[in-house]
Simulated assay, not measured.
Amino acid sequence: MNRQQANISVVSANYNNGKYLRQFIDSLMNSSLLPREIIVVDDGSKDDSVRILTEIAEETKILKPVFLNKNQGFANALNAGLKIASGDYILRLDPDDFVHEDRIRLQYELLERNRELDVVGSNAAYFDSDTGKIIFKTNFPATYEEIKKRYHTAMHGVLHGTVMGKTALFQKYGYQQEYVPAEDYAIFARMIADGAVMQNLTAPLTFVRIHAGSVSNDLKYKAIREPYAICNELFHTSYGPLRSKLTYYHLKFYRRFLFQKNLLKRMWYLFLAISLNPAKLVARIKRQ
Rank of each mutant, 00 (worst) to 15 (best):
N2S: 10
Q4W: 05
Q5P: 02
A6Y: 02
V11Q: 06
S12F: 03
G18N: 06
K19C: 09
Y20Q: 13
Y20S: 14
R22Y: 11
I25S: 01
L28D: 00
N30R: 07
S31V: 01
S32T: 15
S32H: 12
L33W: 00
L34Y: 00
R36C: 04
V40H: 03
V40A: 09
V41S: 09
D43A: 07
S45P: 08
K46M: 08
D48Y: 13
S49T: 06
R51I: 05
R51W: 05
T54C: 06
E58S: 15
E59L: 10
K61Q: 12
I62D: 00
L68G: 04
F74K: 09
L78I: 08
K83L: 12
A85N: 11
A85C: 08
D88N: 12
Y89L: 08
L91D: 00
R92I: 02
L93S: 00
D94A: 09
D96Y: 03
V99I: 14
R103G: 00
R105I: 04
Y108M: 04
L111Y: 00
E112G: 01
N114L: 13
L117S: 08
V119C: 05
V120H: 01
N123M: 09
D128E: 14
G132Q: 07
F136K: 13
K137R: 15
F140A: 07
T143R: 07
Y144L: 05
E146Q: 11
E146T: 05
T153K: 12
A154C: 08
H160L: 05
K166H: 10
Y173M: 06
G174F: 12
Y175G: 02
E183H: 09
D184R: 03
Y185A: 04
F188L: 13
M191G: 03
I192E: 01
D194I: 11
V197L: 15
M198H: 02
T206Y: 01
V208G: 01
S214A: 10
K222E: 13
A223V: 01
E226Y: 14
C231L: 04
E233F: 05
F235N: 04
F235Q: 06
H236I: 10
Y239F: 15
Y239Q: 05
P241V: 13
P241Q: 12
R243M: 07
R243T: 10
Y249I: 06
L251N: 08
K252N: 14
Y254L: 15
R255Y: 13
L263F: 10
Y269V: 04
F271I: 12
A273M: 07
N277C: 06
A279P: 01
K280C: 12
I285M: 13
